[in-house]
Computed example of a mutant assay.
Amino acid sequence: MDKQKNELTGSFALNALNDAEREELLRDAEASQDVRQEVEAMQETAALLGLSAAPVAPPARVKANIMSAIRNTPQLPPAAAPHQAQDAAAEAATDHAPESATETGPDPLPRISPPAPARGSRRMFALAAGVLLVAAGALGGVVANQNAQQQKLEDQLAALNTKQAELTRILSAADVRSKTQELDNGARVTLAYSATEGMMAVTTAGLPALPSDKGYELWLISGTGAVSAGMVDGAKADGMVMVSGSMQGVTHFGITVEPASGSPAPTSDPILVQAL
C-alpha cells in the first residue's frame, strides 16, 4: 500500500475524509484486499477505544432522589379562566366591603396581640433546631460523597480524552500500521502504531483471567533485546493500553505472563510475538 492510501485509511477510521477522498478509498478497497484489510483493522482499532474505559454506573440514590422529588413536590392547581378570576375577585371584594355608614352595629372588637409562646413550645423549637443541625450535617456528608464521585468521573473522562487524543495521533500519522493476531484460545490482540509518533495502541480481547499475583507484560523487541512496554491487569485483561517511547529499531511486539509487579526481562515463553 502506498503512503497516500495509508494516510487515508487512518483518516477514514476517524471519519475525517471529505466525500471525494472517501469514495476514492472505497474504490481502492474494492480493488485491493490489502487496502480492505487495512481499513477494517483501522476501524476496529478506533471502535475499540470506547471499550477501553470501564463503564460507570450511576449512583443508586439518583433514582431514589427523583422518585422522592416526585412524591414530595405538590401539584399546582389548574389555572382559572380569566372570567372566573374576575368573578372571584368581585365576590371577595363584596364580602369584605365595610357596612354602610347609615347602618348601626356593634362596636368593633379591640385588636388582641398574639400570646407569647409557651415554655413547651420553646422546647419544641429547640428540638426542631437540633434536628435541623443533624440533618444539615448528614446533608454535608452526602454532598461531600457526591463531590468525590463527581471528581472520579471527571478524572476518568480526562483519562479517556487523553487516550482518544493519542489514538487520533496514531491513526492520523503518515506511517500508521495496524496488525491483528488471534491466539489459539480465540483471544485477539490488535496493534495500531506509528514509529514517527513513537506511540502504539494495544487492544486486547478475550485474554484469559490470571491469578491476582500475575499479569500480562508487553514487550518491544529489537536486535538488542526486549524492553518492557507496560502491564495489562491479569484480572481485567480486555481493553486498550497506550505505549509511548522510541520505536527506533523495534522489529517485534510480544506478550508474556509475568508477576503482577512486572519483570525487567521476560521470564516465560511468550503467548504472542508479532512482527512489526
Rank of each mutant, 00 (worst) to 15 (best):
E217C: 08
E197K: 13
S194N: 05
Y216K: 01
T204Q: 03
E197P: 08
A209Y: 13
T224G: 08
G215L: 03
D213I: 14
W219E: 05
L218E: 00
A209N: 14
E197H: 08
G223T: 12
M199V: 06
G225S: 04
M200Y: 09
L220K: 08
A195P: 09
A201M: 03
S194T: 06
L207R: 10
L210M: 10
M199D: 03
T196K: 12
G215R: 03
P208C: 02
L210S: 02
D213W: 04
G206P: 00
G198T: 04
T203V: 14
L207T: 03
K214S: 14
S194H: 03
W219Q: 10
T224L: 13
T196A: 12
G225T: 07
T196L: 07
V202W: 11
V202H: 06
G215Q: 07
G198Y: 00
S222F: 08
W219T: 08
A209L: 15
D213R: 08
S222M: 11
G223N: 10
S212Y: 11
I221M: 12
G215D: 02
P208D: 01
T224F: 07
G198H: 02
G223S: 07
G223V: 10
P211T: 07
S194Y: 05
W219A: 08
L220Q: 14
A205G: 12
G206L: 00
L218Q: 00
M199G: 01
A209I: 15
G225Y: 04
M200W: 06
T224S: 12
T204Y: 02
E197L: 11
G206A: 00
A201R: 02
A205C: 11
D213G: 09
E217S: 04
V202D: 03
G223W: 03
P208N: 02
S212C: 09
S194I: 07
D213T: 14
V202K: 02
A201N: 00
T204L: 12
P211D: 07
G206D: 01
I221L: 11
G225Q: 04
E217L: 05
L207D: 10
A205I: 14
M200A: 14
Y216F: 05
T224Q: 13
L207A: 06
G225R: 13
K214Q: 15
A201F: 00
D213V: 14
S222G: 15
A209T: 15
S222D: 15
P211E: 09
D213P: 08
P208Q: 03
A195V: 15
L210R: 05
T203F: 13
G206N: 00
G206R: 01
L210Q: 11
S222C: 12
A201L: 03
T196Q: 10
G223C: 04
M199S: 04
S212Q: 15
G198P: 04
K214T: 10
S212N: 14
G198K: 02
G223F: 09
M200S: 12
S212F: 11
A205F: 12
L218V: 00
E197R: 10
W219V: 11
A209D: 15
I221V: 15
